[in-house]
Amino acid sequence: MKKDKKLPDIKINKEWCKGCAICVEFCPHDVLAMNGAYPEVVNLEACTACQLCDVRCPDFAITVNKNEQEETNEAKK
């Protein structure tokens, strides 16, 4: 049976982000890159959901959802 790898869900809140690039620079797998004033996800496949971007984001502007419990998340909606 083919098992799809569930990719993490990275959300960037541009309303709160100030474009300091800390998330980009300290990502151990180069998942993020700056695009103009804001970061964007450029390599989601490489993301291990370590959440170090979230830990070091001073502006509460990035979150990483591991997507482990996709079904329960769906149920909540």
Binding site: K18, P58, D59
Partner: peptide, 22 residues
Amino acid sequence: YLRQQKFPLIWCAGCGDGIVLK
């Protein structure tokens, strides 16, 4: 834990205070 209506934070881009808050 946040008063979200007060966001975004007043601190400058690259300031570490938000990291300590978290």
